[in-house]
Simulated assay, not measured.
Amino acid sequence: MREWIPVSTSPRGRLALAAVEAFGTRPFAEVTVADLASAAEVTTGALYHHFGSKLGLYAFARQDVERRLLDRMEGAIAASAATSGAVPDHSAAVTSALLVGLDFAVREGFLYILGDPPAGTDHDRLAEMLSQTIGPAAPLLGRVLAAAWRAALAAIAEGADPDHARAAISALRLHIPDNP
């Protein structure tokens, strides 16, 4: 359970909301501390006080957005497992999750914050969730799929049609060996 939920009228809450908006629609490097402070109607000192740095605020916003993404993707996996019968179809579950996640990121305008690999850490929760779904039989597949999914978001951010990105994800044919 989350320790703290930002209140949008507090300076910390306004900074969190401004960060989700700014980092969702622009690359990390293009968002400045001044942009974030201005959008939240606070001083840059407030940003440093509450989050320590731009990267600290980014990490906070990304964790929130990523949790929302993973909740939806895990729901898609669970729904796929419930409809697949006695023998789970991991390939269909993963494809379904990737499509649900893509639709969520596009709809909410989170192309950059979710399309970029996590900044400042090697911990990739999306790749880990995909790897857990796939199982130990294909240990790197989660990382590869996370990279492909992020490439689809990056293409949309650069102007590609979201339907083409969906078609590309749907065209992936996964062969996931049975777990030992």
Rank of each mutant, 00 (worst) to 15 (best):
residue 88 P to D: 03
residue 77 I to V: 15
residue 71 D to A: 11
residue 67 R to G: 15
residue 116 D to R: 13
residue 113 I to R: 00
residue 103 D to E: 11
residue 73 M to V: 08
residue 105 A to D: 00
residue 71 D to I: 12
residue 75 G to N: 11
residue 73 M to C: 14
residue 66 E to Y: 02
residue 116 D to L: 13
residue 109 G to R: 05
residue 74 E to R: 15
residue 121 T to M: 03
residue 70 L to C: 09
residue 114 L to D: 01
residue 90 H to F: 10
residue 106 V to H: 06
residue 71 D to W: 07
residue 86 A to N: 07
residue 116 D to I: 06
residue 114 L to G: 01
residue 89 D to S: 11
residue 86 A to R: 07
residue 105 A to M: 02
residue 75 G to W: 07
residue 84 S to C: 11
residue 78 A to P: 02
residue 113 I to C: 00
residue 81 A to N: 10
residue 66 E to I: 04
residue 95 T to A: 11
residue 96 S to E: 10
residue 87 V to D: 08
residue 104 F to Y: 14
residue 83 T to D: 07
residue 111 L to R: 01
residue 106 V to R: 01
residue 93 A to E: 08
residue 71 D to L: 09
residue 98 L to W: 07
residue 67 R to T: 13
residue 74 E to M: 15
residue 104 F to Q: 08
residue 66 E to L: 09
residue 102 L to Y: 00
residue 81 A to G: 08
residue 76 A to G: 10
residue 114 L to I: 06
residue 97 A to K: 01
residue 96 S to M: 09
residue 119 A to D: 08
residue 77 I to L: 14
residue 115 G to H: 07
residue 98 L to R: 11
residue 65 V to E: 00
residue 108 E to H: 09
residue 104 F to S: 04
residue 104 F to D: 13
residue 87 V to N: 05
residue 121 T to W: 05
residue 100 V to Q: 12
residue 98 L to S: 05
residue 101 G to T: 07
residue 73 M to Q: 12
